[in-house]
Structures are given as C-alpha cells and as structure tokens.
C-alpha cells in the first residue's frame, strides 16, 4: 500500500467507469454469478428518508488500505459552506432525524465546526464519523472532543481491531496507539460511559478478503479486550463488510482474491438483509452537492435516478425514484447484511 491515493497515483481504478466495468464483466458477464439486479428480482425503492449522510470532503490524514473513498492528504475535494448551508436548510425544513457526517476526515473541512453548531439542534442524532487519529493530529483538532461533547455529537469511530498489529496493517503505523489515546480522551469526557447520553460507537471492518463475523460476538470481544488492556468503554460495535470498490477492489485484484470474494458475497446473499439496506432510508450528499443513494454509489459516481441529482434542487419527491445498483451491492446483502449502522439482521 502506497502513501498516496489511487487518484494521486493515477491508478486506472481512480476512474469509476473502470471499476464499474470490472464489476460488470468476467464472472458476472459469463453467467457464473447472477448480476445483483437479476438476483433481487425487483426494483429497489426508498422508504421514508431518515438519514442525510453528508460527505464533507475526501481529504483525510490517513491513507487506509481498504478505503472505499480513496481518501488521503492529497485529496482536495472539500464541501463548500454554500453547499453545507443547503444541507442545513433541508434538515430544518424536512424533519431529517439523523445527520451523518463523513469524509475523508469530516473534521478537516474548514466549515466543520460551524456546521455542527448550526445543525445539532435540528436533528435527533448528529453522527460524526471520526477516524480518531485526527483528534490527536495537531493543535487545530485537539479541542474537538470537548466540542463534540458540548454539542452532543454521536461519535462513530473506526477501529479495525483491538490489537495493534491488525489495526496498523490496515490503517498505517502508529494508528492504533493514537486511536487508543483518543478513545481514552473521549471516555474521560463521558463518551461511552454507562448512563451517559454521549454515544461512542466503534466500527470494525475485516482486515482482508473475508466477511465480518457475528456483530454481537465481536462486540463482546472488543469490549472485553479494550476494557482489560486500556480501560476503554464504548456503546456499540458496528461490523461493516468491505465493499469491492476503490482501494479494496485494488487490493482484491492485486492479491487475486477478487473472484473468490465476489463468489463469497453472492453465496452469502441474504434476502432479509435486502429489506433493510441503508439506501432505502438514506440520502448521500457528495462534496460538490451531488446526490447519491449511498456513499458507495457516490464513490462509483452513480448519481440518483431522475431529473434532480443535486442538493440545490432537493424535493421530497425524489424519494419516489428507483435505487441504482451494481454488483458491489452484494456487499450490503451478504450474511447478516451491512450498513453504516452495522449488521442489518443483528
């Protein structure tokens, strides 16, 4: 894994058309595996919009091996204040219950604090997806834990594993120790503590070409290990399946695991998970205001169907669209299912 994004390396997979071509050809073209649209045998449509997930930019202080965003320090795409204001207006006017801020590292957006201050009173649940290391990166971010607590931000943090080796292999040297330090800081403010309103959840994704195990069992293992070794507590663990796109697709291809991984996803297809996939209650907003059915479709540049595909033209009627799918969608329907809120059938 290099220290630059696929985009900066001008890797062919930074072209989303190339990714979609790979996902549509080969074992899905020769009939060995069914295409997702044929497997579900119905059109997927949104239900009630509950979550507005905003990608505040692709800039990140980390370059993780599995990142579906292809984020990194070299990515300059950042959401403007004007676009953020449009998102804010939707929260105010359309009763969005959950606002989910992601990136990159959303904290690196220069308008991040303003947006959190403005939006926190307009939604029931304000989620910030933090990579944790940004909280210890430098003076600019040092006070963010207190800021989060003040605005009752629900912190959802990536931590691939409770051991140093597996975490650093996926996310870079030193990431584990910095993450532990950040978690201890959040705990000291009340985050994740019993009877505290400050919610701290962790996200686990497999460090390789395999599906996540049972969410409840892994949560119990994480809680036991983090408490015993570091005195850390948290609320929930979300297990998320690695999507066969972007950097993880690059890894799958480079290690000749792509076809077996896709077979595993297809074999583990779970129709019950399909009923609750996140694209049915989420709308994803790209850094430039473009609208997508989910963050994964955003990274494949699959904008929502219909005449309105930008936040500036948002109308509740866009909820009547059909959701765009490709073979990566098997990642959300495999096994217990997967979403940004973890397993779907846990």
């Amino acid at each position: 894994m290099g220290l630059k994004s696929l985009h900066a390396r001008q890797n062919s997979l930074s072209n989303t058309d190339r990714q979609l071509e790979i996902l549509s050809n080969g074992i899905f073209e020769n009939g060995e595996l069914p295409r997702f649209i044929d497997r579900i045998d119905q059109k997927l449509s949104p239900k009630k919009l509950e979550i507005l997930q905003i990608n505040m930019g692709y800039m990140c202080n980390q370059v993780c091996a599995h990142c579906h965003v292809d984020a990194g320090p070299d990515r300059k795409e950042i959401m403007t204040r004007k676009t953020l204001q449009m998102c804010l207006d939707i929260c105010k006017n359309h009763r969005i219950s959950t606002l989910d801020l992601t990136g990159g590292a959303p904290e690196m957006n220069p308008h991040f604090r303003w947006f959190v201050e403005e939006s926190s009173t307009h939604v029931d649940d304000l989620i910030v997806r933090s990579n944790l290391t940004i909280l210890t990166a430098n003076k600019t971010y040092k006070e963010l834990p207190e800021f989060f607590a003040k605005h009752n931000v629900h912190v959802v943090s990536s931590l691939p594993f409770y051991s140093r080796n597996k975490t650093d292999r996926q996310r870079g040297d030193g990431v584990f120790d910095k993450s532990i330090k950040a978690l201890q800081t959040l705990n000291a403010l009340g985050y994740g503590q019993p009877n505290s309103k400050l919610q701290l959840d962790l996200v686990y994704n497999p460090a390789g070409a395999f599906l996540p195990g049972d969410q409840k069992e892994l949560e119990a293992d994480f809680k036991k290990a983090l408490l015993e070794d570091f005195g850390i507590v948290f609320n929930k663990l979300y297990t998320i399946t690695n999507m066969p796109i972007s950097r993880f697709l690059d890894y799958l291809l480079a290690t000749e695991n792509y076809e077996d991984y896709m077979r595993e996803l297809v074999l583990a297809y779970n129709p019950t998970a399909l009923e609750n996939v996140m694209c049915t209650n989420t709308l994803s907003v790209g850094w430039d205001g473009s609208l997508y059915d989910c963050d994964f479709n955003q990274m494949l540049n699959l904008k929502i169907n219909g005449p309105i595909d930008h936040i500036s033209g948002y109308k509740p009627e866009i909820n009547k669209r059909s959701i765009r799918v490709s073979q990566h969608c098997y990642g959300c329907t495999a096994g217990a299912g997967s979403s940004c809120q973890g397993a779907l059938n846990s």
Partner: peptide, 9 residues
C-alpha cells in the same frame, strides 16, 4: 476463514 471472521489472530 472462520477464525479470520471471528478476529482470531
């Protein structure tokens, strides 16, 4: 594979 999914080192 089962061990990997369970986080066994």
């Amino acid at each position: 594979q089962d061990g990997l999914k369970r986080g066994i080192e």
